[in-house]
Amino acid sequence: MKNCRKIISAALAVALAVVFTAGCGKTSSAPAKKSGKGAAKKVTFCLDWTPNTNHTGIYVAKKLGYYKDAGIDVKIVQPPEDGAATMCASGKAQFAVEAQDTMAAALDSDAPLGISAVAAIIQHNTSGIMSRKGDGIDRPKGLSGKTYSTWESPIELAMIRNVVNGDGGNYKSIKKIPNNITDEPAALKAKQTDAIWVFQGWGGINAKVENVPVDFWRFADINKVMDYYTPVIIANNDFLKKDPETAKAFLKATQKGYEYAIKHPDEAAKILIAGDDTGSLKGSEKLVTESQEWMAKQYAKDADYWGQIDPKRWNAFYKWLYQNKLSKTDLTGKGYNTKYLSK
């Protein structure tokens, strides 16, 4: 199965940097307007990838009428080639799915994109390195001398270097090959690569479903500063300012959708599968169901409520980027807004 977001992270970072240096930080966003008296306000929500269990709460809120009850008509769309953040910043979508690491490129510019993270979809960074079981890559230094599939993202590679060298390994000895993998367990089994970056709730669960024995370790368990927010829901800044009540209503209904998914993962999985109009989940019902069971425990783990963003943890990662020369500017305090969602 596709690796929800990371497959396109490097391309997205490049696209954002190129597209928005020409002043595209300005948006054409306008408040979602009523089409008539008593009519629902129209909101466009852009996914970051084809539907998966990161998105379940959105589909639940739509199917169970939470958005309708809030006076909102939500349209869920796929991202354009230049990414969901681009679509959101342009005003063609009021909300979208992104991640704190790939957002850095959008914010670290003379003309930063007008977007802000307004809710954390899950509370912890569950991504890490997956490898064939018994190959000795059950800890970071084990990557030394092995083949790793990379998106060639500066942040991605800096994180790999940090944990490998910090564990006594040799980052320079890693053989890096392009990552064009869509089914991570199958690629490992076929020995197309030795190691690949996956999200535990999808790639990790898929290894179990496909019965491929693997080793896996999380970045957040190795270096706490890497426990950044991924994925998040972002919003267009102009929209937030011009129509805060709709923004709050949308996020409250979305929160309700994820709370349902936490309490009723099996039912939520069925709603996601039924709501997928891309056909990408066809034949993957077992993966979706088992992923949803796992994700239900992650959405609000260690948080006071679903969607909570801890400024200290957000800022710690961006400070680390700046200190390691992965951003030109100190992004501390930038890129998030906690005013629109509460318990």
Rank of each mutant, 00 (worst) to 15 (best):
N236F: 06
I122S: 03
S173W: 14
S109L: 02
D110A: 15
I122L: 14
L321Q: 12
V212K: 04
T329K: 13
A61L: 01
K33I: 15
A11Q: 03
L47I: 00
D221M: 08
S90G: 15
R218C: 12
D108I: 06
G145P: 07
K241A: 15
E156R: 11
G114N: 01
Y318M: 10
F239M: 07
V118Q: 03
N223L: 06
F199T: 09
N52R: 04
H264A: 08
V212H: 07
G169C: 01
K256W: 02
K301Y: 11
L272V: 00
S144M: 08
A247S: 14
G57A: 05
G283R: 10
K208T: 11
C4V: 03
A13T: 11
G279R: 05
G23P: 07
L47H: 00
G142F: 08
T182N: 15
A187K: 02
G145H: 08
G283S: 05
V288H: 00
P185M: 09
A261E: 01
T21S: 15
L321A: 07
T332Q: 06
Q78H: 15
K286V: 13
C4L: 10
G36Y: 09
D73W: 00
T102A: 15
A99L: 06
E245T: 13
V288C: 10
M159W: 02
I273R: 03
T56Y: 01
V163M: 11
P79M: 07
K37P: 15
L326G: 06
V97C: 04
G275R: 00
F20Y: 12
F239W: 02
D227R: 02
G204N: 02
N236P: 08
V19D: 14
M295N: 04
L157V: 09
K37N: 14
G201D: 03
K242F: 13
T193N: 12
S291K: 02
A186S: 10
N3I: 12
V74A: 08
Y260C: 08
L113P: 01
N324C: 12
W217V: 03
I309L: 07
K319I: 04
D101K: 08
T53E: 01
H264R: 11
G166L: 09
K301S: 07
M295P: 01
T278H: 02
Q308D: 13
A253I: 07
K242A: 11
L281Y: 09
I7L: 14
H55K: 11
S327C: 13
A187S: 15
I262R: 10
M1Y: 11
P231S: 05
V198E: 12
G204F: 03
V288P: 03
G307A: 08
G283P: 04
L12T: 03
Q292D: 05
T329W: 10
R132E: 06
T147I: 10
L331H: 05
L107T: 02
D138P: 06
D110I: 07
S116N: 13
G142K: 04
G128C: 08
W314E: 02
K224R: 13
V19A: 12
N211T: 12
M130T: 05
P79G: 11
Q123S: 09
A296E: 02
G65C: 04
D82M: 11
K224Q: 14
K297R: 04
G201L: 09
C4H: 05
W314I: 12
A300V: 01
T147A: 07
T56G: 08
V43I: 13
V198Y: 01
N54E: 13
I155L: 04
A104M: 06
I271S: 02
D183Q: 09
V77T: 09
